[in-house]
Design a protein around this nucleic acid. Structure first.
Lengths: 235, 235
DNA sequence: GACGTAGTATGGTCAGACCACACTTCGAAA
DNA sequence: TTTCGAAGTGTGGTCTGACCATACTACGTC
């Protein structure tokens, strides 16, 4: 019966980098030292260093690329939704989370964001303009379903982003991503899709109008109906 | 100018396993095939297989251990909070998320959970009993600060779990974990900690009482005040 | 039958190699 | 002198093959 959790080699590098991030030694846009250099610095093998960097990669902390130069190697980005999306997605697959919970959470986050007073009114106005463009693009009858879903997701995330909370924004994006396959699979034929998309367009316009006229309560209510209605169609 | 995002080798295994999870071929408690077997099956090296499994590991999908037998190797668990915690934690370090957003999100999730009618009243009653025990343990003056924080977190997560939403529960746990170091560091000395812990104990008891007497609105309000007050002390 | 030991398969780690790639450098051609 | 292309250099990505500690299994001994 072993009690020790067996310390992993990559943890050394991971902790070191996390500390550097916290203390500000490493900031957005910086390059990490090369894998070979990190391996030597910490006295572990390159394989273990790669474990640590792989984790930072899937978590959306760094982006890695081959080649040399200032844009190569592991560069600090910070895309919280990347890691959270991946986690939620896998746990939905593993049945640790079900679709009801995802939908419930989406409604919670989106209605909250809708009712929040925008943290930045100039940005909020820009969002209104950009979402208007998205609505127009979703009117295109030539649009593929995949593309529609992509723009649809962007529409929702953009509206929620006016609340100015990266956690909520990332969560929304992640929740949407985590079940996008499920959604796509549950409405297989185009015949059943056509009437649905018409309703979605109408709902989006109503939601946008409520936002534009500052009817926050109403926007929240419309969003809740919109999300609930859509998922009721996926069965 | 390369346009291809360079397909990663480990993605093959990751997708295969995700599909098996989705289709039910793999379920909770199952063992994954050995790394050497997976490598041969997919025609890639063991190193790349390990990349995939490492990801499943940090995401909380599997637990790996050495040795042989039914409990060895990679076993499917499903601990959503593991992956999300790690992601949030790193992004807080990388300044992609700030503490205000964490606190705001905590309040959103906890007050929502408090106002939700419990999905399972029997479970809710058990939670009330267990949180009562936690409150008693937090009264122990011998308790270390670390231990207090641990029990405190468990208290909050347990209360929220009555809402019956794994996403919300995982998020709460993750938000709490992601800034626990920050909290610990911001109240360094025991002299300033003593008066704080007294208030926390009082607030916890009031919250528990509101839950026990089914005053959901009041419980939500007390939670909000409790969380806001505590973080106002960490500056 | 009980018990201890050898066997076996697992993940964890390491070393070393080769590749494709992207930038850098520098010399040759205009 | 300027331009441009080829060689050079360092990066992560992948593979191979090896060794280790561990934990269970099976077998042989008592």
């Amino acid at each position: 019966m072993s009690v020790n959790p067996a310390p992993r080699a990559y943890q050394v590098v991971l902790t070191a980098i996390e500390n550097d991030l916290r203390s500000g030694v490493l900031t957005l846009g910086d390059q990490l030292p090369g894998e070979r250099a990190l391996a030597e610095q910490h006295g572990i093998s390159r394989a273990s260093v790669r474990d640590a960097i792989r984790i930072l990669d899937v978590m959306g902390i760094v982006r890695t690329s081959t080649g040399s130069g200032p844009n190569s190697g592991a560069v600090i980005i910070s895309e919280p939704s990347a890691g959270i999306s991946q986690a939620l997605r896998l746990h939905v697959a593993a049945k640790g989370i079900n679709v009801r919970e995802i939908v419930e959470s989406r409604i919670l986050l989106e209605t909250w964001a809708a009712q929040m007073h925008p943290r930045d009114t100039v940005y909020a106005q820009q969002v209104l303009d950009r979402t208007a463009v998205l609505i127009m693009r979703m009117d295109d009858p030539q649009l593929s379903r995949d593309e529609f879903h992509r723009i649809d997701a962007e529409f929702h995330v953009l509206l929620a982003s006016t609340a100015g909370n990266a956690v909520v924004e990332s969560m929304m994006e992640s929740l949407r991503n985590s079940i996008s396959d499920y959604v796509a699979a549950s409405i297989p034929d185009d015949e059943s899709w056509q009437p649905i998309v018409r309703t979605l367009r109408r709902q989006h316009k109503a939601i946008h109008h409520a936002f534009a006229t500052d009817q926050r309560e109403r926007a929240a209510q419309l969003l809740e109906e919109h999300i609930n209605w859509f998922y009721s169609q996926t069965r």
